[in-house]
Simulated assay, not measured.
Amino acid sequence: MNRKRNTAISLAAAVLSGVLVYSIYVVQLRHVQEQEMVRVVVPKRFIAAGERIAAEDLTYMPLSRSAVNEAMLLQPQEADGWEAVVPLGVDEPVLKWKLDRYRLMPNRSESTFQIPRSYVLSVSNGIRAGDRVMVYVTGENTASVRLFDEPVTVASVKSSNNVEVDNADQSNLMSLADNDKERMYASRRDANAMIDYVNLNLTEEQWMRIDEQCKGGGKLVIAYSPTSFDAVQDGRSEEQ
């Protein structure tokens, strides 16, 4: 009887020991997997906002798998030829939202329309390429209304000499990307010319609405909206 009981106890102890060993193995395996290193893309040097990135500007840095997220680039070729939306520090993992290829190009549902001068009553002298603007319509026989609920993107602002209106020393786009509100303000005060032509990225429906309103006697008022600066701040807040 005692022999059977001892045998049963030994078997139970062996099973428990096996379970304990397996549990330790699973925990260690999971720990090793979490500590497994993944190579992510980082800059070799400081890259300023607005600067176009080349593959040779980038290298790899090992990072634990648990710290890697979907926004991080794993191959330098993914950033080759793209533009830095915000400054990129040395050895800082490159995130997809910090890059853009054609910042002033219209999206798939838009086209870039030059607004005829005869359609425009006034343009805020502070607007610059890359800004988001509100569009209003007014006129003697037209009720004053805001045409679109959301602001639209300015593709370019040109002088009468077909020169982009901006601050030659510190462009608005660079200041916007650097999150530098003071320089943005200064660049709008120290522009190199008056605005004569405005190009907006619009959907076909938006352009048709503008055309219809202006052919009916309305005039456009194009006003700067601070959402351009806010969008950069929001993007940084989400990252943090």
Rank of each mutant, 00 (worst) to 15 (best):
Q75M: 05
A71I: 01
N107D: 15
R103M: 13
A143K: 14
D91P: 13
S124R: 06
S124N: 07
E70M: 12
G126I: 07
V94M: 02
Y136G: 07
P93V: 01
G130Q: 15
P116L: 08
G81M: 07
Y102N: 03
S109T: 09
F113C: 10
L121E: 01
A129K: 09
T138K: 00
V123E: 13
V94H: 04
V94P: 03
Q77M: 01
T138I: 03
N69E: 11
A143D: 14
W97T: 02
V120D: 09
G139A: 06
M72R: 04
P116N: 08
P76T: 12
A79M: 02
T138A: 01
W97G: 02
D80K: 14
D80R: 13
V68I: 02
V85H: 05
P76A: 10
A143N: 13
E110V: 07
E140F: 15
Q114T: 07
D80A: 14
A84K: 11
E78T: 12
S109R: 05
M105C: 13
E78L: 08
E78I: 09
R132I: 04
A84E: 12
R117Y: 09
V123Q: 14
R108Y: 15
W97Y: 04
I115A: 11
E140C: 08
L121R: 00
G81S: 08
L99P: 12
S124V: 01
L104I: 12
I115S: 14
S66A: 10
Q77Y: 02
R103E: 11
E78D: 15
N141A: 14
Q77P: 00
A84T: 15
N107A: 15
D131A: 14
S66C: 07
E78G: 06
S111D: 08
V120E: 11
Y102R: 03
S109F: 06
Y102G: 01
P116R: 06
R117K: 09
A129P: 13
V90C: 05
S111M: 12
Q75S: 05
T138Y: 02
Q77F: 01
V86S: 07
L95E: 06
R108I: 10
L99E: 08
V133H: 06
L104Q: 12
P87A: 02
D100A: 05
A67V: 14
R108M: 11
D80C: 04
L88V: 00
S109I: 02
P106T: 10
R101C: 04
R108E: 08
G89R: 05
S109E: 04
Q77G: 02
V94L: 00
E140H: 15
V68Q: 06
M105G: 13
P87R: 04
Q114F: 06
V123R: 15
M134A: 14
E92V: 07
G130H: 14
E70H: 11
L88R: 13
Y136L: 04
G139F: 03
V85W: 02
A79I: 03
S122L: 11
E70S: 13
P93A: 00
K98R: 05
W82R: 05
K98G: 03
S122C: 12
V86N: 09
K96S: 03
K98D: 05
L73A: 11
G89M: 02
N125Q: 12
R117G: 11
L121K: 01
E140L: 12
G130R: 14
T138S: 02
A67F: 04
A129C: 09
E110W: 08
F113H: 13
R117A: 09
W82T: 07
L95G: 03
R132N: 09
Y119N: 10
P116E: 09
N125A: 11
G126Q: 13
N141Y: 09
R101I: 05
P93R: 00
